[in-house]
């Protein structure tokens, strides 16, 4: 069991530069396609410090999920080095817990059995793992739904089950790929609050991938803005907003300034993406 859940909450001041726990060094990913290689990620470097909340933001198709898969150890064909606490990643690393962009609960397991899944793998006795699972179910606010099947829940609830399942494995680094992308705005904001609260409670080191500026600014200590194809690191923005934060911060003036700044960066990339899409579509319809 990791010590992170036992440590007292850190002060609400901006995070002190802790030790680096995740290091991505000159990452370069190319996919072989019938039309030749497609460069998905070009020369991305980043460092996540212990206890930090770092977001990667970028337009659709810029290679965010690719970075996610590389850090999670699911995609091993790449150049550059990714390491966790100095250890190079060559496959899924036990310190990293992943929450996926798509719906990923197991439909044949109840909520509590879904959440207890990683504990089952460690061979924890049943009574103990159900108790642990209950703890994480409560943390994501799903108490009372333990015996339900995912098919009986809403999309937002299912995504919380996935989150609880990943948290139950007590990863040193929580890695999330647009976990709220499929949800409506209100649910997204409330779930964002939940994630922030949990992150604060566990002092959870988190790497969030998103294309939502509000979400990124609301939650992050730092934001890495990526360019549209090939995906490069464009800028790192430090978000100097007081913690603990909730979705109420969205109305503040400082918040607006950050959003405007990141939007200015992103707009250029997103519009490049759009024209790119249009030309390829025109080309497609012409042929």
């Amino acid at each position: 069991m990791s010590a992170s859940s036992a440590t007292a909450p850190r002060s609400a001041s901006p995070p002190q530069p802790g030790e680096a726990i995740l290091d991505v060094d000159h990452l370069h990913v190319a996919f072989q396609t019938p039309d030749g290689p497609v460069i998905a990620v070009e020369d991305v470097s980043l460092t996540v410090r212990k206890g930090e909340f770092l977001s990667i933001i970028g337009p659709s198709g810029c290679g965010k999920s690719t970075v996610f898969n590389v850090v999670g150890g699911l995609l091993t064909e790449h150049e550059g080095r990714v390491s966790v606490a100095g250890e190079t990643i060559v496959g899924p690393h036990p310190s990293i817990g992943m929450v996926f962009q798509e719906e990923s609960t197991f439909p044949w397991r109840t909520v509590i059995d879904n959440v207890a899944f990683p504990l089952e793998l460690t061979g924890m006795p049943k009574a103990q793992r159900l108790e642990r699972a209950r703890h994480f179910i409560e943390m994501v606010g799903l108490q009372g739904f333990e015996r339900r099947y995912p098919g009986e829940l809403s999309g937002g609830m299912r995504q919380r089950v996935s989150l609880a399942r990943t948290l139950a494995s007590e990863p040193k680094i929580l890695l999330m790929d647009e976990p709220f992308a499929a949800l409506d705005e209100q649910t997204r904001l409330l779930l964002g609050d939940k994630v922030l609260q949990i992150q604060q409670e566990l002092q959870q080191t988190t790497l969030l991938i998103t294309h939502n500026i509000t979400e990124a600014v609301q939650m992050s200590d730092r934001i890495l803005v990526m360019t549209y194809r090939p995906g490069k690191a464009k800028r790192i923005v430090e978000i100097d907003l007081p913690r603990p934060r909730t979705s109420e911060i969205v109305g503040s003036e400082a918040f607006g300034r950050y959003v405007a700044q990141i939007w200015a960066d992103l707009r250029e990339e997103a519009s490049r993406g759009l024209t790119d899409d249009e030309t390829s579509r025109n080309r497609g319809s012409a042929s």
Binding site: G72, G73, L74, P92, P94, I96, G97, M98, F100, E102, E103, S104, F106, P107, W108, F117, P118, L121, S169
Partner: peptide, 25 residues
């Protein structure tokens, strides 16, 4: 695929991956 990837992210052995994910799915 994502269900199989969940299994991978939890470091399942091929046997576990079959019995705990592929087969029930």
């Amino acid at each position: 695929r994502v269900l199989v990837n969940v299994g991978k992210s939890f470091n399942l052995t091929p046997m576990q991956s079959f019995w705990k994910i592929l087969f029930p799915a």
